[in-house]
């Protein structure tokens, strides 16, 4: 079958740079564009709403405990009478914070590790990837639970524990790409010019990994959200009075008669995860049209 790409035939688009084309393609995917918009708005709201709301996320108000959703409390109140709407958004903020911090950590470790292994090659590569293989043998959930119990329960430890087990995929992907890049002419030229290896890695390899890394990022962030939420289910989430979506859902699951405690945080998390899935799809299609 003959497959013709619009970009080859349409001269106007032909002259645009790679990234301009990616942006045009991404924008043409309405669902992905809307999802990105949604995430940006939601992330801003998690910051804004706790600031402007007349309710406090931490102050108990026993008179109004377990009130169903109403005009006063849009999402109802929890067992301590705290407004669930505010708590859901502040929980979202913590969830996003953990997820983004973990993602940045995953990115740094994964890119550096993978780029070094792929670029240096030989025995170094073999040993480094063997280590990754070994870590792959450890089920991630138990390992992060082990880390958290060892180092104590805190926001910082949570994200370190999550990051520590999630960089493996990133390292593998980056290594594969680097090996592909290593034999490209411009890298070979840089080697011939005797540029130091670290300079080649930083100036030439890492910028060229951007495409894969961006797609992968859109997959890592939701994974981090889920992982941090799962940890809450094992009693290893953030501590009261602070909260996160995982903690809220876990609490909601323990008190089903007050259905709103479960429903609203769950819906919030589902829409966020779906939005990220759409963004990842859109990015993948935009970067790698087939």
């Amino acid at each position: 079958m003959v497959k013709l790409d619009k970009l080859i035939t349409d001269d106007k688009i032909r002259q645009k740079s790679f990234w301009q084309i990616v942006i045009i393609r991404f924008n043409s995917n309405k669902l992905a564009r809307f999802s990105l918009f949604f995430i940006v708005i939601l992330a801003s709201l998690t910051v804004i709403i706790p600031l402007v709301s007349s309710y406090d996320y931490s102050m108990p108000d026993f008179v109004n405990s377990l009130e169903p959703p109403s005009i006063k409390h849009w999402f109802g109140t929890d067992g301590l009478g705290r407004d669930l709407f505010v708590r859901t958004f502040i929980g979202g903020r913590i969830t996003f914070e953990i997820a983004f911090m973990a993602t940045i950590a995953v990115m740094c470790i994964g890119i550096i590790y993978g780029a070094i292994a792929g670029f240096v090659g030989g025995i170094v590569d073999t040993l480094m990837m063997r280590f990754v293989d070994i870590l792959y043998g450890i089920p991630f959930l138990f390992f992060s639970i082990l880390l958290i119990t060892l180092f104590g329960q805190s926001l910082f430890v949570s994200f370190v524990a999550i990051a520590a087990i999630s960089w493996l995929d990133m390292a593998r992907v980056v290594r594969g790409q680097t090996i592909g890049l290593r034999h490209k002419e411009f890298i070979e030229a840089a080697i011939l010019y005797n540029l130091p290896r670290w300079a080649i890695i930083i100036n030439h390899i890492i910028p060229n990994l951007l495409g894969v890394v961006i797609v992968y990022l859109a997959l890592v962030v939701p994974n981090m959200i889920v992982l941090s939420a799962v940890l809450s289910f094992f009693g290893l989430g953030v501590m009261e009075p602070m909260t996160s979506w995982g903690v809220l859902i876990s609490d909601g699951a323990n008190n089903m008669t007050a259905w709103w405690l479960l429903l609203f945080p769950s819906l919030m998390m589902i829409t966020t995860l779906l939005a990220f899935a759409n963004i990842a799809n859109g990015l993948r299609d935009a970067l790698d049209p087939r």
Binding site: M1, V2, K3, L4, D5, K6
Partner: peptide, 12 residues
């Protein structure tokens, strides 16, 4: 002819 995203390919 083949119907593709960008139009009709006139193959034969």
């Amino acid at each position: 002819k083949f119907a593709v995203e960008d139009g009709i390919v006139h193959a034969v």
